[in-house]
């Protein structure tokens, strides 16, 4: 039996909206540690890893670990019916083939419930090793989204290079070339405007812009995004889900043929 009551139900909508275009269906694994999701896009170039910890929930009961396979488009349809401030409660039986979502308005004057059909999904789980990253950049999520959008209008791939001077995003295409450099800024008046660069050694990697742009759909989740890079390894793009968990995206770099 699963029962999970999330006061900030709007958070769930933001998570699903952030990933539904990248991954069409996924298993949501539920255990005593909370909700976890790991899924790759159809081309197996990028991966989503999400964890919503059980202590994020006002009430959390999970008698037996279970895997709930869902169409994320259908899940998004259901969650669209929830108000942004609604309290969301998920309920499922151990051997059931449905999950029920209950939405309560903050004033408790409206209650609705939706039953979503579950499906069997074969998914491959990747073991992601703990990595000591050469460069970790924490920047405003809106700035990251803007850079991805601006550079996408010029080119298809971006070189992200982190040096002691800052982090440079470079692209080129038929129009010409574009460079955006983000420098460390820890003295901004507002904390949400700060950029922190932790550099152990310089690193430069090339990525397909369309995936990085897709990750920016998570912008409403957090004021900041963290890019973690190491030579010849996938970049990790992380959005914190407040103090309740995280949404991470991994993207394989392009390499010289």
């Amino acid at each position: 039996m699963l029962e999970a009551r999330l006061v900030q139900g709007g958070m769930l909508k933001k998570v699903v909206d952030a990933v539904k275009d990248l991954v069409t269906e996924a298993n949501i694994d539920v255990s005593s540690s909370g909700f976890q999701l790991q899924a790759m896009d159809t081309s197996h170039v990028s991966l989503i890893a999400m964890h919503l910890r059980s202590d994020a929930f006002e009430h959390f009961r999970c008698d037996r670990a279970m895997s709930m396979g869902m169409s994320l488009a259908n899940l998004a349809k259901v969650l669209k019916c929830a108000g942004n401030d609604d309290i969301v409660t998920l309920k499922a039986n151990d051997d059931g083939d449905t999950v029920t979502f209950m939405f309560e308005s903050p004033k408790e004057d409206r209650v609705s419930d939706f039953e979503l059909k579950l499906m069997d999904i074969d998914s491959e789980h990747l073991g992601i090793p703990d990595t000591d990253y050469c460069a970790t950049v924490t920047m405003p999520s809106g700035e990251y989204a803007r850079i991805c959008k601006d550079l996408s209008s010029i080119g298809d791939t971006v070189v992200i290079s982190a040096t002691k001077d800052g982090v440079k995003f470079t692209t080129s295409g038929d129009v010409g070339t574009a460079n955006v450099t983000v420098r460390q800024n820890t003295t901004a008046d507002k904390k949400e405007d700060q950029t922190i660069i932790d550099l152990k050694e310089p690193v430069a990697l090339t990525f397909a812009l369309r995936y990085l742009t897709s990750f920016a759909k998570a912008t409403p989740l957090a004021t900041h995004v963290t890019l973690s890079m190491t030579r010849e390894l996938p970049v990790m793009v992380e959005y914190a889900i407040q103090d309740m968990g995280f949404l991470r995206f991994y993207l394989a770099p392009k390499i010289e043929d």
């Binding site: 170039v45 991966l47 992601i128 996938p234 394989a252 392009k254 390499i255 010289e256 043929d257």
Partner: peptide
């Protein structure tokens, strides 16, 4: 020329 490897080429299948 650049090629786009999959994630499996970096991470192992668990």
């Amino acid at each position: 020329d650049e090629k786009q490897p999959t994630l499996k080429e970096f991470f192992q299948i668990r």
